[in-house]
Design a protein around this nucleic acid. Structure first.
Lengths: 202, 202
DNA sequence: TTGACTTGACCGACCGGTCTAATATACTTG
DNA sequence: CAAGTATATTAGACCGGTCGGTCAAGTCAA
């Protein structure tokens, strides 16, 4: 078989799909290799361990997000409130599409991995935490702008931003457990009502 | 060795601890047996499979909750708003205590299992869904009473109840990823601000 | 010729689960 | 009560399969 320049990419995207639609522990390297049409030796040429693969998958998807629908959702041209709507809609349509293809709602890869491995693997946990921190920062900017232009009353924008991210993850968790993307559509709008008040600065 | 009448209970509580502090896939039956001081033959005498064990663990913990702090939190004697505070506080102190003992925040067993196995195991997924439905029902009652006694304006109590549960799970997810129970204390109060409006009944 | 990449056999450890034999308890009799 | 029997429980060796990971021998392009 000839050398294909995209071997690493094939491994990465295959692993990403499998980890997302099942779980970290449930997907073996052998299975990834088979689906990616790669031999084990090649795999370990590119990734020293399964843990390294997981890190690469996380980075890969995080980048895709940052340059994909997250960038669109948090477009500075959009009014702050609409950005939240956009985000919820994007999650809804994404999960719905995924369910139509696979029959099951995969949920959020980061959330899935976080709950599965963060008590066992400090390195992965830290990486996932960084991804969440970045996501939270986008909400934070949005809220700061909303407060600045007066569209919402002052509040603890940093805490509320994190709260909104938490809410989104929680909604996805429940929707996945119900295997019903409609949960996202119904509960999603609630994200705009979350408020954490400023701590009195005395 | 003598026959001990609580073999099944030992297996159950050991499995519960291990599943909670690690994950379903990461904990083997052999390890459970060793810690519970039980032989494999005995294990499979009481539980036909690992899946059955998981179901039993879920039921076990669900019952403990229902008769434990959930019953206290949703005590009808408490004003509805205080019940939400109680719930958040309980989660906070519980997670904090667990972290002090084990060094890591275990999060919510149900949430953990839901994200790990619900794409692979319909039976467990359905059971977890039922547990969430029961929890959501408690929030629902609470909100109905709050609306009834006028302490909050009318809203879609059913959807909001689910949204609150989602928020709680999301907060726990983020806290676990940060391995910091303080996240629960800081974001927790936000649960009372979540509102999902009634759909216009036309 | 070098070095990146591929091949696929191989490794020990562990997985969930099975099985037979032993043992303790409970139930039935005389 | 004693003896015998059925049943519940325990003991632990054993099974095929899979796990993450290794390795020596190639194959290719530069």
């Amino acid at each position: 078989m000839s050398i294909s320049p995209d071997t690493k990419d094939r491994i990465l995207s295959t692993a990403r799909e499998l980890f997302h639609s099942r779980s970290y522990a449930d997907v073996g390297i052998k299975e990834i290799c088979t689906l990616a049409r790669v031999q084990k030796g090649s795999f370990y040429h590119f990734f020293p361990s399964k843990q390294d693969l997981a890190m690469a998958v996380i980075d890969d998807m995080s980048d895709d997000w940052a340059h994909g629908f997250v960038a669109e959702a948090f477009d500075e041209a959009l009014p702050p409130t609409e950005r939240l709507d956009y985000m919820v809609d994007a999650v809804y349509y994404w999960q719905k599409a995924a369910k139509n293809v696979e029959g099951r709602m995969p949920g959020c890869l980061f959330g899935n991995l976080a709950l599965e491995v963060s008590t066992r693997d400090e390195v992965i946990r830290a990486r996932l935490n960084a991804v969440f921190a970045k996501a939270s920062a986008r909400f934070h900017e949005t809220l700061d702008q909303a407060v600045e232009n007066g569209s919402i009353p002052p509040l603890d924008t940093e805490a509320t931003a994190t709260a909104m991210l938490a809410y989104l993850e929680g909604v996805i968790l429940l929707a996945k457990t119900r295997n019903d993307p409609e949960v996202v559509r119904i509960l999603g709008p609630g994200i705009k009502t979350i408020r954490i008040e400023l701590k009195p600065t005395n």
